[in-house]
């Protein structure tokens, strides 16, 4: 190894990166699934939704939670994003490779990157909009959801896909269970969460009178 590299190399850097990738990933999945359950309380009626939103606000949970999630998301993008091939040639290799060699999980990863980069953009817009019209309440939400239902639909699909396969990948890389049953469990959970999401989307739109 060259002297400069030797001097600057931190022997544990890659270990830390990997751990950060693991924990931010898990946290974000946990967050997204909880968030989806919270949002879908609209199914129980606008009162429940508003009480919950107000509750989170009253106990400052939002004020701790939101910045925390934003920081975690940034760390996630940095740690997981380091895997994304940056050099043009590497990207070409990946594409050629994925096309030539049939490996399902290689495609899972490629979609992980694509969906990840997409939600980076969409998620940022969404968070910005929600924060700009603080606080959360059913009426405002309904307004946004009816106006931008297509935006939420896309975000929902991408986000849940990314979360569902993300957690699958983490268990594959770290866990004790074989892939096939793991994949099945992750798909079931994702389907349930998606169901909740669709239902909430539908209720918001019904509330807004769009339907």
């Amino acid at each position: 190894m060259q002297a400069q590299r030797l001097l600057t190399k931190n022997p544990r850097a890659e270990l830390y990166y990997d751990i950060v990738e693991l924990f931010t990933g898990l946290t974000l999945v946990g967050f997204l699934w909880t968030h989806m359950i919270f949002v879908s309380t609209i199914l129980l009626g606008t009162e429940v939704y508003d009480i919950l939103a107000a509750g989170l606000d009253d106990y400052y949970l939002s004020y701790i939670g939101i910045p925390f999630i934003i920081i975690v998301a940034i760390m996630h993008v940095l740690s997981a994003g380091r895997r994304i091939p940056t050099r043009y040639q590497e990207q070409k290799v990946i594409w050629r490779h994925a096309k030539m060699l049939k490996g399902t999980d290689t495609w899972v990863w490629i979609f992980q990157v694509i969906t990840g980069v997409s939600i980076l953009a969409l998620g940022a817009i969404h968070v910005f909009v929600v924060l700009a019209q603080w606080p959360i309440d059913a009426a405002i939400s309904t307004e946004r959801m009816t106006a931008f239902w297509w935006f939420y639909l896309v975000l929902l699909l991408l986000g849940e896909y990314h979360a569902g396969f993300g957690i699958y990948r983490q268990f594959v890389k770290w866990g004790w269970f074989p892939r096939r049953p793991l994949g099945f469990v992750c798909k079931v959970i994702t389907t349930i969460i998606l169901g909740l999401g669709f239902a909430a989307l539908w209720v918001f739109n019904a509330l807004g009178g769009a339907l």
Binding site: E14, L15, Y17, D18, R83, L101, G103, T104, D105, T106, W109, R169, V172, K173, R179
Partner: peptide, 12 residues
């Protein structure tokens, strides 16, 4: 830590 869990190894 270089392994990204692509699992082509496991498949093949």
């Amino acid at each position: 830590f270089g392994c990204m869990g692509l699992m082509a190894c496991d498949d093949n």
